[in-house]
Simulated assay, not measured.
Amino acid sequence: MSSNLQTIKVACSNCSLRELCMPVGLDDQQLKRIDDIVAVRRKVKRGGTLFRNGEAFTSLFAIRTGFFKTCVATEDGRDQVTGFQMAGEIIGLDGIVNDRHTCDAVALEDAEVCVMPFERIEELSREVTALQTHVHKIMSREIVREHGVMLLLGSMRAEERLAAFLLNLVQRLHARGFSQSELVLRMTREEIGSYLGLKLETVSRTFSKFVEEGIVEVKQRHVRIVNTEALKRIVNSQQACH
């Protein structure tokens, strides 16, 4: 494991993702103190694990490059995907409650993360209120996201689930400066199905339906959203029914 750790000085102040994972409006001295905390980067190869279910929780991780999935093993030995995380997002919050991680975090492509020791973040949060507020915001966003997934799984048809998933993904990528309509799926159809509570065949069939209706174009993992409004209508028709 130590071979994965590189003690490179990471300057949050110079990082292009700073606006996404650090609070805005810190002065130079406060930023320097955060820079001092985030002293280590860790590389994770595609298919490698950043942390495992049951492992002691010591740090949060800011994803610098790459894409992760979080998953838990079900009682019958299947992997249940609980989320997908991308560059600029913080991963590892699941460990705060019981000081142990409650899921596995697996890299879906070669990735690099900044290691943020949680004790140090807590110490600094007490002095820098902007950081404390930011950590709370990140946690809150995670709760809202999970709530959204529960709604998704509780009441939506397959088309609505996939439409909501694609819209959410493209919106998060757009916040990172990527296209509003084109994306490369880093996860397999099977992993999407696991996350959305759908069988693999249903995911494939729903993608095909969207293609037939001229809503998306799909070439293997490349997806181009041709008609964003149509996707929004599919999701909103569900909400209108309630």
Rank of each mutant, 00 (worst) to 15 (best):
D104W: 12
D104R: 08
A105I: 02
V106A: 08
V106S: 05
V106T: 08
V106R: 08
V106K: 03
A107G: 06
A107M: 09
A107C: 06
L108T: 15
E109V: 11
E112W: 00
E112Q: 10
E112A: 12
E112Y: 01
V113C: 08
V113A: 03
C114D: 05
V115F: 00
M116P: 03
M116G: 01
M116H: 00
F118P: 01
F118K: 07
F118N: 02
E119P: 06
R120P: 03
R120W: 08
I121M: 11
I121N: 03
I121K: 01
E123A: 14
E123K: 14
E123T: 15
L124W: 13
L124V: 14
R126A: 10
R126V: 00
E127W: 13
V128T: 09
T129S: 02
A130W: 00
L131K: 01
L131Q: 03
T133K: 14
H134D: 07
H134R: 12
V135I: 15
H136C: 11
I138F: 04
I138K: 12
I138Q: 14
M139I: 14
M139F: 15
S140W: 13
S140P: 00
I143V: 13
V144Q: 04
R145D: 14
R145A: 08
R145V: 07
H147W: 01
H147L: 12
G148D: 14
G148I: 04
V149D: 00
M150K: 11
L152H: 09
L153H: 06
G154Q: 07
G154C: 06
S155L: 14
S155M: 14
M156P: 01
M156W: 07
R157N: 13
A158T: 10
A158N: 03
E159W: 06
E159I: 07
E159T: 13
L162P: 02
L162F: 04
L162H: 02
L162S: 02
L162T: 01
A163F: 04
A163P: 11
F165V: 09
L166D: 09
L167R: 05
L167N: 03
L167T: 09
N168F: 10
V170F: 12
V170A: 06
Q171M: 04
Q171W: 12
H174C: 11
A175W: 00
R176G: 00
R176C: 06
F178G: 02
F178M: 11
F178L: 12
S179Y: 06
Q180P: 06
Q180V: 12
Q180Y: 07
S181A: 07
E182C: 13
V184W: 05
L185W: 05
L185Q: 10
L185Y: 11
R186E: 04
M187Y: 11
M187E: 10
M187F: 01
T188N: 04
T188H: 05
T188F: 05
T188Y: 07
R189H: 15
E190C: 07
E191N: 07
E191R: 02
E191Y: 14
G193Y: 01
Y195V: 05
